[in-house]
Design a protein around this nucleic acid. Sequence first.
DNA 1: TTTCATGCTATTTATATGATTAATTGGAAT
DNA 2: ATTCCAATTAATCATATAAATAGCATGAAA
Lengths: 230, 230
Amino acid sequence: MKQSSPLNITQNLTHTLGLAIIRGDFFEALPSEAEICERFGVSRSSTREAVKMLSAKGLIRSRPKQGIRIQAERNWNMFDPDVLKWILVSKPTLDLLREFFEMRLVTDPQAAALAAKHAKPENIVELRKALDRMRDAENGLDDVLDADIAFITALFEATHNRFFIQLIEFTSTALRVTSRYSNRMQGINFSNVSTCTQVFDAIVQKQNEIAFDLIKQMLTKMMIAVITEQ
Amino acid sequence: MKQSSPLNITQNLTHTLGLAIIRGDFFEALPSEAEICERFGVSRSSTREAVKMLSAKGLIRSRPKQGIRIQAERNWNMFDPDVLKWILVSKPTLDLLREFFEMRLVTDPQAAALAAKHAKPENIVELRKALDRMRDAENGLDDVLDADIAFITALFEATHNRFFIQLIEFTSTALRVTSRYSNRMQGINFSNVSTCTQVFDAIVQKQNEIAFDLIKQMLTKMMIAVITEQ
DNA sequence: TTTCATGCTATTTATATGATTAATTGGAAT
DNA sequence: ATTCCAATTAATCATATAAATAGCATGAAA
């Protein structure tokens, strides 16, 4: 999706360490710079750069003499796509999925309401395109997950709110990872085409509350399906 | 608030460049590594580490021959406290404030509802402490902003939802920065003590909907006050 | 001539390494 | 208890080499 090019050394180390931290492979601190270099067979430059990237995401903090210490989970940037991905890959618990839905349960309906309020013609165009893809996907002519993400993307872009737009990456990362890695979560995350069509109509007619309620109901059903499923 | 120690070279450069990028000082790309070194009088290591930190936050992307290119605003991690701070400091527009409230208008009520559902005894204790601080602040015995943030912190921690807990940094950063830098925004962001007391009672009695509605009403009033004020 | 593919070159970041500086901890000396 | 010292570790600087790639040049095919 993002970069087709193979990861370079720094990126690789960043992902390896990030995942290891979140998986709990280290206790309170990472090995020293020198030891990381040795253990992973990379130079100090690459090690330091990887450490800086993880610091920027709130996972660690590095100081002389103290070493590279893992920060409290509270400081992790959960909305960073990388961090979210590492968490979902390493511990895709039902609890986390519930927490994710508790968030979507308010952001998505509000996004629909804001879209109804602020959508411009080009947003309507994109929403219609996404709806078409969802219909195609129902008939096996397109990927269900991609189509779902396309709709969410168009919906959140129509809010013209930077914070909501930021949630596109958040939500699509979560959807992609959970649908790829966890069997339990498969196939239950997808939006309903007819509901989304109704949402689209509500947005076109600027009916905020209706758009809000439709998405909320849809997500509530999805959430119940996910949480109760074993 | 965070670190009392003076910023080191890398941190300094990160902030300088981050702020400059968001302020729009550069067009599409940053100067080359070598030029940044020269212009800011730092070594290549520090430059590269700062660049890596900004890459990790989604602001830029650096590739051989292409240089250090600024990413589309869509890719910026708006929920990263640093990024949010730079944005608020460099362009504290009314639009942005509206977008911020549109977000809080759903996250805060939901946080209250989740707190009512999931709060544990220690969360109740913290909420009560925060309420006491808010009362003290009303009488000039404590800082209003700090007390407000303490309540929000206790509220969001009580959700026991990692995504909501992450929003503590987000919200408190926004409150601190806006109240410090913008006169227009001053004094209008603060919560109402009596409402918060009612919210507290609702949480103790596990009345989700009541807690939800109380916060929503309070925020709606605040938002109207902010948006209509000139 | 035009078009497109191929390979070359210059530029820029990526990586590696050594040397020096600064911050911080923990213990020693007072 | 306080101050000072020493050891450790990251932070910074400097330099060298490798890898990636955009842009140009070249030349063959239409």
